[in-house]
Design a binder for these strands. Structure first.
Length: 289
DNA sequence: CGTCCAGGTCTAC
DNA sequence: GGTAGACCTGGACGC
């Protein structure tokens, strides 16, 4: 195991980034190609030069070390660090959110560095995984993503090309993705042939939140829930993730009997551009140390 | 065994 | 613009 780099646990606005809060920030972060670990480190396989490379991330004071059992060349090491930087979204500035949270009894606990939702190295991976969460139990998501990583990707998340080349029967019989198979395959094909650039949905590339949301909603299998989910992982925090898990969780924590979606949205309107993040942190507080 | 539904979306009215 | 019905899969549950 050789440490080949280190990244500061600091956001673009100088705000702290909590390593444990970030890796506990949402469910997709626990899916393959991440592997469970009980020592506080985060283990994941990255796709570098079309091969799976195991990487171990570990907090070291105000930074995180990046190590691998494989000896990496300088260019591969740079690529790995760039991917980890995107996952932790270290170029995002959450300082404006913490300025709000400091004065809010419900969210003050986040100001030590919670609120970064761990993203995948690519937007493509996050969108695919999100589609795999729709209309099925969590066990189904684990099965579908596990098949993508183990069977198609050789241990790392498959490339769009690898997913595009997989047959319909693979999605049906191996991933057991049901009707989602056609969505995933179509999505991968468009990205692989260069007709669709999901990475362009990242902030700072010319698309505002509304345009980004419209682009996501136009994707096969992506509706309001999936678009909101993908937007959060992109660091676009306006929309609330409303689904069959978040709704009842909100009711339980807020001790309400029932609440329409529009009522929940109104309750978080005061957080402005961070309404979705505030909602997510409110309902996932129990996940955090 | 059948029905329901899980971290929804799409199509057709 | 709003709302039913269908949709793959597989656990959970009732009968």
């Amino acid at each position: 195991m050789a440490t080949f780099g280190s990244l500061p646990l600091t956001g673009a606005g100088g705000e702290p980034v909590s390593f444990p809060h970030t890796i506990a920030s949402h469910g997709l972060a626990s899916l393959k190609p991440a592997t469970p670990s009980d020592d506080g480190a985060y283990r994941i396989a990255l796709r570098i030069d079309d091969a799976a490379v195991a990487v171990v991330l570990r907090p070291e004071g105000r930074a995180m070390s990046v190590a691998s059992p494989r000896r990496l060349g300088a260019r591969a090491a740079d690529e790995a660090l760039a991917q980890v930087r995107r996952m932790f979204r270290l170029d995002d500035d959450l300082a404006p959110f913490y300025a709000i949270a400091r004065d809010d009894d419900l969210l003050r606990w986040t100001t030590g560095g919670a609120g970064r939702m761990l993203a995948s190295p690519t937007v493509f991976e996050d969108v695919v995984k999100t589609i795999c969460t729709t209309n099925c139990a969590w066990s189904g998501t684990i099965r579908m993503v596990g098949a993508l990583v183990d069977d198609l990707g050789g241990g790392a998340f498959p490339s769009p090309g690898q997913m595009a080349r997989a047959k319909e029967s693979w999605y049906r019989d191996v991933a057991r993705a049901g009707y989602r198979g056609a969505y995933l395959r179509a999505l991968a094909r468009e990205v692989a042939r260069g007709a669709l650039d999901l990475e362009a949905l990242r902030p700072g590339r010319g698309l505002d939140d509304d345009a980004c949301e419209a682009a996501l909603l136009a994707l096969p299998g992506v509706g309001p829930y999936a678009a909101a989910h993908a937007m959060q992982l992109l660091g676009r925090h306006h929309r609330l993730i409303l689904d069959s898990w978040t709704r009842p969780t909100y009711l339980r924590l807020s001790e309400k009997k029932r609440a329409k979606d529009t009522t929940i949205v109104r309750a978080f309107k005061k957080y402005g551009a961070y309404a979705g993040l505030a909602f997510w942190l409110y309902i996932t507080r129990e996940w955090h140390p």
